[in-house]
Design a binder for these strands. Structure first.
Lengths: 134, 134
DNA sequence: TGTGGGGCTTCCCACCATGGGAAGGTCAAG
DNA sequence: CTTGACCTTCCCATGGTGGGAAGCCCCACA
């Protein structure tokens, strides 16, 4: 299977497949006589694993760990769970930060007349002229 | 005022001040005879504006627009509000995506025994062997 | 057998915002 | 005058992803 077909079958772009190979996330692909990368079902399966991991927000480094565990038949599910819990914690932190931003902005926006007049509590906040609590 | 002092006073690192100048977000600083950048209160004020904007998650491009409006005494607060609303929408999208990830993972994690045994619903999901709804 | 179009290869560049660090000039205190 | 802290510019790295150029390859069709 060509890289293009593997890309279609896995949902990972050809560009990214080459990149994952380059950084060592996946082993170097076999090559045809003419130098084309050649993939089988196992490789596509792995790529789909990676794709799903990315969709769940795992970093490439985390996916690398997950792949090792996946390949390791004698893994302990506790190790997988630990990675997942760590990732959830990271997600929740990010969410909290973004939510904080959104809330602050929402407050400012709802205080802004939003018409033709120049007075604007949003700019006032950015300027720092008003004391803010958050 | 030196760049280091301006950095301390504004909360923007010296590195970033130079970067902002380089990309044209802020005007080129005056220089002393020996070539050092020289800042006054106005510049620090502007840097604090930028810092606050970054803290609220605005991109440099958005901040550039906000700075223009800030400097424009005849601005319309509606323009500011529009930028802020757009940004809030972006934040909410990001939050929703992250929350979706966290929820999915949380479900998987709570199904995972997390002990010494190798069976793991998290890996099973990544592998794609189980049909998933989310 | 020739040819054209699409796919493959590698290599470089860009994003966005930030930090690290090297090499060399400057300033101020002792 | 030395020393140490600061400044300058310049290059590099991050993390994933896409864009594109130059050149080779493969297949189908005439």
């Amino acid at each position: 299977m060509n890289i293009g077909q593997a890309a279609k079958a896995s949902g990972v772009s050809a560009k990214m497949i080459r990149y994952y190979e380059q950084i060592g996330l996946i082993p170097k692909a076999d090559r045809t006589l003419s130098g084309y990368r050649d993939y089988g079902e196992a490789e596509v399966h792995m790529l789909r694993f990676i794709r799903r991991g990315r969709d769940l927000g795992f970093s490439v480094a985390e996916i690398s760990d997950l792949l090792s565990l996946w390949r390791d038949g004698s893994r302990q599910s506790g190790d997988v769970k630990r990675i997942a819990l760590g990732h959830i914690a990271g997600l929740n932190e990010k969410i909290a930060r973004l939510q904080q931003m959104a809330d602050t902005l929402q407050t400012l926006v709802s205080c802004c007349s939003g018409d033709h007049r120049p007075d604007c509590p949003i700019l006032a906040d950015l300027e720092g002229s008003a004391e803010r609590k958050a």
